[in-house]
Design a protein around this nucleic acid. Structure first.
Lengths: 337, 337
DNA sequence: TTGTAAGCGTTATCAA
DNA sequence: TTGATAACGCTTACAA
């Protein structure tokens, strides 16, 4: 059974292909009767538009891309990424856009893959995540004029379209909160420094201690946003320093989880001996015992806003995107006193 | 800056467009010198093929689709789905396919969306998840001859391409294991019955008890694969029956998590008073205390196999797909004695 | 080994 | 309000 094309419909309805095309786009220069006739014919023949052919002439794919590097993805542990994806997908769905998902091995591949999506004209725009220092990809996209929205931020690129939370402030506030709860010696537990998000949170932490605390900042920096790394890092720290802290601010829930384990194994009580706060609010960890206190990011919403912004940029040439900073929420559960 | 097309390259290289096209596909009826010349020219001009134009003539998109209904997605709790997606993405990446991800509101929409992907010629094939009884979508795809691979199975459709684990056997074995560990009264904790996976696991559970146990099967069936539902379900069960069981086999890790909470709240000890085993092996839950015992599914691998099979079907007309049944692994941690 | 030309299914331009 | 006709960028017979 061959595919029904616009020509088939035209012939069957006794009109020209262009008329059919106009009916499809609901042009107002077509009489109601003709529209009715053509629509009926389309239904009878089972016509469905060919997105490929349409794209070829309109030079639009109505598709956006999301590329992620696998290490990053694992690094942040899943729920964050799937939350973002869901948010994006919800919007693309509603706006009748398609979403192409591409998963690569490393950052290098991520760059290439992203550019390829554009060059091969598979997408009209992309959403970027996990920006780092000196992000070359962003340079390239800007230079080529390829539309994108960044979830996160890039200090070297002012004024580009981003969706983010204010990590510096959020971390600052969280440290201030711990101080107010009478924690005296707060250390930070960070993932890789190359990510902007790590840097921002470190900065907020340092700043808060400088202004309110009477201790020097101390950051345990582990190789990845992973349980094992955090567990080991904290364990080592405890052993080397024989404790010397009463709170840990982890820059990710998975890190917090690893920290909890290390702390408990050393016979310290949570939250009496040491308080812990994480970042993200993985739903699953709220069911833990002790339930994790955490800075909740509006993850799903971040995906939505990014998709919405990108699609708007795509359809409105005068709109160049903006900076959307979403607010977070400190969720206090069992791990702080 | 206009897009560089095959014609531009042809002109610059002093050959015809078809020659350029042949060089791209590395046809062996082109001399090495010409190839070299054309390739150099492509590089100089910065040529990149236009996937859309190519698709229009080849009638292939080199894209596969993955559609999921949001309720399903939330139901199963994230990690399962993102594991599958990652597996699929890894293969599509390697095979130079694109992956279109579509997320819909409900099953009805999921059907429509899937068919639309085919009708609008956006994809060459799709991967289906979460099959249920009387799955109309599968009927339609078969009728239309649209290629697909199912992750799971559909009892009404024998011989269709699927990737699955043997849920009946896996559950049977797990119950047998609990029996051997001297648990006497094992109840099952299931999600919605409409999913085939729920039915299969129920069947394995019932069968094992029939053959080895001396108790009647008893299944707590909750509305969704969610913590809250499981928690409430188990709590109610305990209160109504004043315990009367010493083990729970949960058909999903999230359900197990809910059960654990309910049980602990009622002052029962795990695993002394009641043993618990889940399904899936969410990585995060292995860090729990007590660490969850569970039936580990090769989730990532399932995604991979499905993608691999589909792509093979797409490229080899004589290959109609097959049934791949992957084996699982019982991971015993702290929640059974 | 290479070139010519038709066609994939649309939309867009220009006439009528 | 409608219809011809020319793109869009590529692949693929068919010729040469």
């Amino acid at each position: 059974m061959k595919n029904v094309t616009i020509k088939d419909v035209a012939k069957a309805a006794g009109v020209s292909p262009s008329t059919v095309s106009r009916v499809i786009s609901d042009s107002n220069r077509i009489s109601e009767e003709t529209k009715e006739l053509v629509r009926r014919t389309m239904r009878e023949l089972g016509y469905h538009h060919n997105a490929i052919a349409r794209s070829l002439v309109t030079q639009k794919t109505n598709t956006i891309g999301l590329v992620m590097a696998r290490p990053t993805q694992q690094a942040f542990a899943n729920p964050f990424f799937s939350g973002i994806i869901q948010g994006i997908a919800a919007v693309t769905q509603k706006e009748h856009y398609s979403l192409i998902l591409s998963s690569t091995g490393d950052y290098r591949e991520e760059q290439e893959e992203t550019l390829k999506l554009f060059r091969n004209r598979r997408v009209d725009g992309v959403i970027l995540m996990s920006s780092r220092r000196n992000d070359e990809l962003i340079d390239q996209l800007i230079k080529s004029g390829y539309p994108f929205v960044l979830i996160g931020r890039s200090p070297e690129h002012e004024g580009i379209p981003i969706v983010n939370n204010d990590n510096i402030k959020d971390t600052y506030d969280t440290v201030a909160f711990l101080l107010k709860r009478n924690y005296k010696k707060i250390i930070a537990l960070s993932g890789p420094e190359e990510y902007i998000v790590s840097q921002d949170r470190a900065q907020g932490y340092i700043q808060a201690l400088r202004e309110h605390g009477n201790m020097d900042p101390e950051i345990i920096c582990v190789a990845d946003f992973k349980f094992e790394d955090a567990y080991q890092g904290v364990l080592d720290y405890i052993k080397e320093n024989r404790k010397k802290f009463d709170a840990i601010l982890a820059f990710d829930d998975m890190l917090a989880l690893g920290a909890i384990r290390a702390i408990q194994e050393q016979g310290l009580r949570i939250p009496e001996d040491v308080g812990i706060i994480g970042f993200n609010d993985e739903p699953m960890l709220s069911y833990l015992k002790p339930a994790l206190s955490t800075v909740r990011l509006p993850i799903h919403r971040m995906g939505e806003e990014a998709a919405r912004m990108l699609i708007k940029m795509l359809n409105d040439d005068s709109y160049k995107g903006e900076e959307i900073i979403l607010s977070t929420e400190l969720i206090i559960r069992d791990t702080v006193r």
